[in-house]
Design a binder for these strands. Structure first.
Ligand SMILES: [Mn+2]
Ligand SMILES: [Mn+2]
Ligand SMILES: [Zn+2]
Ligand SMILES: [Zn+2]
Lengths: 146, 146
DNA sequence: TCGATATTGAAAACGGATTTCAAAATACAG
DNA sequence: CTGTATTTTGAAATCCGTTTTCAATATCGA
C-alpha cells in the first residue's frame, strides 16, 4: 500500500466517510495516470475498464482527492476543470501551449520567493497561487513559422 | 474625445463594425468605473441609467473591448468573467482576498523578468500570463484572529 | 445480523456564457 | 437625401460543464 492511498484512507476515516470499491478504483486509476486530465477525459478513460462507475461519482471523488491534497485542481481557461496527481508537497507552475494544448511544468524558487515578498508588503496572507504562462511551445512555434 | 474611445472607433472601422449608440454608452460607462466587475454586475449598474440595453449586448461589447485591448478579462476562480479597464499597456497582477473579495493590484518587474527566463529555457513563446495570489487581505487576517 | 448512515448512478437542475432570430439601426453607394 | 445591403439589437433559447437530487444500494459499527 502506497503513501497516497494511506493518506486517502486516513482522510476518509477522519471525515467519517466510507471506503467504497468505487473510491478505491478511482484512486488507483487516478494515481496511475499523470496528465492534467479533465473530469470528462478521466471518466471516459476509466469507463473502458469500469463501465459501471458513474460520472457523478468520478466527479465527487476527484473533489475529495483535491480536498485531501492528493490532487491539484487547475483551470487553464478552456472551461474545464483539470486534475493532476499531487506528489508529496512539491509545487510547480505551468506553461500552457494554446497551439496544441501541451502543458509544461516548471519550478522557480526565485518567483516563489518574490511572491512572498509581494504578499508581505501588502500584509497579505497567501493561501494559494496560480501562475500560468500562455503561448506557444517550441513545436508550435516551429510549425507556425512555415 | 479620449484615447480609448478613439482606439475603439478605429477598431470598429477596421473590422467593419458599426458605431452604435449602445456601444458608445457601454464604452463610456465602462471607462468610468474601475473595479474588476463581472458582466452581470456591470450590466446591473448600467441598467440603472440605461434600462433599454440588453445583457447580450453588454456581454458582446465587453468582449469587443477585450479584443481591441481596452479591457482585460479575468477569471478569479469564482465562476464569473471579470473585466477591468486596461490603461495604456500597463500590466499588473492580482492579490485576491478569498475572505472579502477584495482585489489588490501589484506590479513586480523581477517576476516578469523571471517569467521570460523560464519561457526562454523552454523555448516557449509567451502570449500572455496570469499570476494570482489567493488568500486573506490584511483586514480579513485581522478579523479572523478575533 | 441489524440498522443507522453514507454512497451510488441516472437524471435533473443549475448558472454563466453564448447563440438564435426577427425587428431595428446603420452605413454607404447612387 | 433615398434605397438597400449589412450589421446590430434584445429577449429568449440554448449550450455545456458542474453540481445536486433521490431512491436504491452498500458500508460498517454495535
Ligand atoms: Mn502540473
Ligand atoms: Mn486589475
Ligand atoms: Zn504546442
Ligand atoms: Zn479581505
Amino acid at each position: 500500500m502506497k503513501k497516497q492511498e494511506e493518506l486517502f484512507l486516513e482522510f476518509l476515516a477522519r471525515k467519517r466517510l466510507k471506503n467504497t470499491s468505487q473510491r478505491m478504483i478511482i484512486l488507483k486509476a487516478f494515481l496511475r495516470q499523470n496528465s492534467h486530465l479533465s473530469t470528462e477525459d478521466f471518466y471516459l478513460q476509466l469507463r473502458k475498464k469500469h463501465p459501471g462507475i458513474g460520472y457523478a461519482t468520478v466527479h465527487r471523488t476527484l473533489k475529495l482527492f483535491a480536498e485531501c491534497g492528493i490532487a491539484a485542481e487547475h483551470n487553464f481557461g478552456d472551461g474545464q476543470m483539470r486534475f493532476e496527481v499531487c506528489h508529496d508537497n512539491e509545487h510547480h507552475d505551468h506553461l500552457v501551449c494554446t497551439g496544441c494544448g501541451r502543458i509544461i511544468e516548471f519550478e522557480n524558487q526565485q518567483i516563489e520567493q518574490l511572491q512572498l515578498d509581494v504578499a508581505r508588503t501588502h500584509k497579505f496572507f497567501i493561501k494559494s497561487h496560480r501562475l500560468e504562462l500562455y503561448g506557444l511551445c517550441s513545436d508550435c512555434v516551429a510549425t507556425e513559422q512555415q
